[in-house]
């Protein structure tokens, strides 16, 4: 299946492209809103700061396209900063509006833990999660969502306290971790998302 991978700024996308290819997809890099709107599935990567990521989406006029896709339950996967940009705002970039799909503010990790969170952490799906299996995922983040938005399933992790590891509803899946770097477990998740997206 063709997956439109949204090119936002200087994010390194080689791992994402390779991961999607291994999962059987045909990823195509694009910053064209019409291509993102038309693609059977859209993929929002995210490395870097919240403010810069949102500025990239807005200047390419992809922000509305993504919100519309999600509202229409059309396949979208967002990872790392991509998940955070679905929120209303972030402590990382005060005063910058997120996409507002989730009525929540992204916060920084606190407490006596390594920040950023770098490495493999246990992921525990909610009972109503259809895509996420229990296992270990690879994270590289200093910010996170604190609680699952109402009406969404997903998964939680723990790093000095609970945080949101994944949010899902139908073929819309947002992961705080990097499935493309999470070994066989991550590959299996990409495949399941591609399967539900093909329906």
């Amino acid at each position: 299946m063709k997956v439109a991978v949204i090119r936002t700024g200087v994010a390194n996308l080689a791992s994402v492209m390779a991961g999607l290819r291994r999962a059987g997809a045909t990823p195509e890099l694009t910053d064209d809103p019409a291509a993102v709107a038309a693609a059977p599935a859209a993929f929002l990567p995210g490395v870097g700061a919240f403010g810069a990521g949102m500025a990239g989406l807005r200047s390419a006029a992809i922000d509305r396209v993504l919100v519309d896709r999600i509202a229409a339950h059309r396949p979208v996967m967002a990872i790392c900063l991509g998940l955070q940009m679905l929120a209303r705002a972030s402590e990382e970039s005060a005063g910058v509006d997120g996409l507002g799909v989730f009525d929540a503010t992204v916060t920084r990790f606190r407490g006596d833990v390594r920040i950023p969170q770098f490495g493999w952490n246990r992921v525990a799906p909610t009972a109503d999660s259809a895509l996420v299996q229990p296992g270990y995922a690879y994270f590289a983040n200093a910010f996170k969502l604190d609680a699952l938005p109402e009406g969404w399933a997903g998964a939680m992790g723990d790093h000095g306290g609970p945080f949101v590891a994944a949010v899902e509803r139908g073929p819309v899946l947002a992961c705080q971790f990097h499935p493309e770097l999470s070994g066989d477990w991550g590959q299996a998740l990409l495949r399941r998302w591609l399967e539900v997206s093909a329906c």
Binding site: S15, A18, R21, Y138, H178, L181, G183, D184
Partner: peptide, 12 residues
């Protein structure tokens, strides 16, 4: 690196 990335699903 490109050849390794094509087959590797963990951080490099």
């Amino acid at each position: 690196v490109a050849a390794v990335r094509a087959v590797l699903g963990i951080p490099l």
